[in-house]
């Protein structure tokens, strides 16, 4: 999906007051890491902060960040589409990333993925109908000694995954509220291509 028709220039904030407070604090810290004239460099951190709040990167939020850091919309989009951790559409409230790289593959990641598919009733790249889970294959997580490995909700590692530990994980997450996703479409000028 490639979002189209972003306008440069002032863009309204996509955040609630509570979210805004956290975002502003995070951005201030991220910008302070760089020399004063290099604040554009904080773009990658800024998009992480957006995703922390909204669960994904809606188009108006990208426009807002671009405006703040004085980065042209095309460059914000370039970055957002280049890196795999950024979500360009809402995903499930819990996200399961199954490592498919060589060590995990050798230790049975294919059956881990298959079990996820069966239990959740979705294929990689999809979200369950109730919005609780999304499933994805991910590249090497640097946890090869604990193969097969999973990444839960972008940042939490589960290693030496067995059928039992996987079932337990899915059962636990199934009963937890998880990350609230900002709705797709609201105030968005996105076009699917």
């Amino acid at each position: 999906m490639i979002p189209l028709a972003t306008k440069a220039g002032p863009a309204p904030s996509p955040f609630s007051p509570e979210q805004q407070k956290r975002f502003d604090a995070g951005l201030e810290k991220a910008v302070a890491k760089y020399p004063r004239e290099r604040r554009k460099a904080a773009l990658i951190a800024a998009l992480h902060l957006v995703q922390d709040e909204l669960g994904w990167l809606p188009e108006p939020a990208m426009a807002y960040v671009g405006d703040l850091l004085e980065v042209p919309p095309v460059r914000v989009r370039e970055v957002a589409t280049f890196y795999t951790m950024y979500r360009l559409r809402p995903v499930g409230r819990h996200h399961i990333g199954v490592c498919n790289s060589i060590s995990c593959w050798a230790m049975g990641s294919t059956s881990v993925l298959r079990r996820c598919e069966e239990k959740l009733g979705i294929r990689p790249g999809e979200t369950t109908r109730d919005g609780q889970f999304s499933l994805e294959e991910v590249a090497c997580l640097a946890a090869c000694g604990g193969a097969p490995a999973l990444l839960v909700n972008n940042f939490t590692y589960l290693e030496k995954v067995t059928a039992e530990s996987l079932d337990q994980l899915l059962a636990d997450l199934g009963s937890q509220p998880g990350k609230q996703m900002a709705p797709a479409g609201a105030g968005s000028t996105e076009t699917e291509r």
């Binding site: 290099r38 554009k40 460099a41 904080a42 773009l43 990658i44 951190a45 998009l47 992480h48 850091l69 980065v71 460059r75 370039e78 970055v79 280049f82 890196y83 795999t84 951790m85 950024y86 590249a139 090497c140």
Partner: peptide, 22 residues
């Protein structure tokens, strides 16, 4: 932090990323 890209382990790609680009 990066945001998920093997190529950013290549040192000049990493510098690009550190400067806020792809």
């Amino acid at each position: 932090f990066g945001a998920g890209a093997y190529i950013c382990g290549e040192e000049t790609a990493m510098l690009e990323s550190l400067e806020g680009r792809k």
